[in-house]
Computed example of a mutant assay.
Amino acid sequence: MVTQLPSSTSKGIIYPESDGQPMADNTKQFELIVLIKKNLDLLFANDANVFVAGDLLWYPVEGDNTNRRAPDVMVIFGRPKGDRGSYKQWEEGNIPPQVVFEILSPSNTVKEMIVKYKFYEQYGVEEYYLYDPDKYELSGWLRSHDQLAEISQMTGWVSPRLGIRFELSDGELQIYRPDGQPFLTYLELAQQIEQTQLELAQERQRTEQERQRAEQAQSQLEALRTLLQAKGINPDEL
């Protein structure tokens, strides 16, 4: 996480906007975090009241600046998009993140992940997804009353909140949009846009060629009519 200047409230309590920890420990973890975050941005681009954040500190309790977590990705329904230095829940209509994602790295300990799980359970997360890219293990929990209950089968699971589907293909995590399209990397999205632009350009070229051929045929027809009329022949009577 990029270190930023701390913020404060009118009560003088400072809520730091950085925990001093890196966003990711390696390229694999970083790429997965970016993949999920950016594709969720695209998925909810037209909904002004869905806020998606990556590696943003979440403070659930006003007055307590030590009780905090920075999920790799979190999604909050009912809050507007926009820049934030941290997510202070009491300033956000007291709405907690409904969905959080964590991507394991080699430095994560079992104790650390248990603490995160308990935090998410205590403070109202509805869906919690955890993926280990080294072991190709995907786990998920869904809120049932006051607890996060483990989802027994994650392959083919569809998020109730997000509508996205999880699959494990050859051990690799694959996520699909509600329309069935897969989550794409930035490079894949750029290549897709480039291909679409190429196809549009080719279609415009074909349309222009058809227009030119039609104009040429019309010109030839008019020339023939003129020639027939010059010979005293009415082309409409032929």
Rank of each mutant, 00 (worst) to 15 (best):
R79G: 00
Q98C: 08
V125K: 00
P106S: 07
D47W: 04
Q229K: 10
Y120A: 02
D19C: 05
G171N: 06
K116E: 13
Q29L: 04
R161S: 15
R165C: 13
L227K: 12
I114V: 14
Y131Q: 03
D41W: 14
L142Q: 15
W141H: 07
S18A: 09
E126Y: 12
Y129W: 07
E237H: 05
Y123I: 06
R206F: 12
M113E: 11
A201T: 14
P235H: 12
R204W: 13
A48M: 12
L200Y: 08
R177V: 05
V75C: 06
F119P: 01
M1K: 00
F51H: 14
A45K: 08
Q21I: 14
V158W: 02
D236H: 10
V75N: 02
G124K: 03
S144T: 15
F101H: 04
P160E: 09
I175A: 03
Q218A: 14
Q212Y: 03
Q212T: 04
L200G: 02
A149G: 00
G63P: 02
V110L: 14
Q229P: 04
T109G: 14
N26W: 05
W141V: 07
H145K: 15
Q220W: 06
F51Y: 14
V75R: 03
T207I: 10
Q202V: 07
L187H: 09
R204Y: 13
Q205A: 13
D47K: 09
F44R: 00
Y15K: 00
S8R: 06
P16W: 07
K116D: 15
L228T: 11
N234K: 04
E167A: 15
R206Y: 13
D19T: 06
T109Y: 03
L189W: 08
V50R: 04
P133Q: 05
S159Q: 10
L228W: 09
I164F: 06
L130W: 08
E126K: 12
K37H: 15
A190R: 12
G171R: 03
L42S: 11
F101R: 01
L238H: 07
N39V: 10
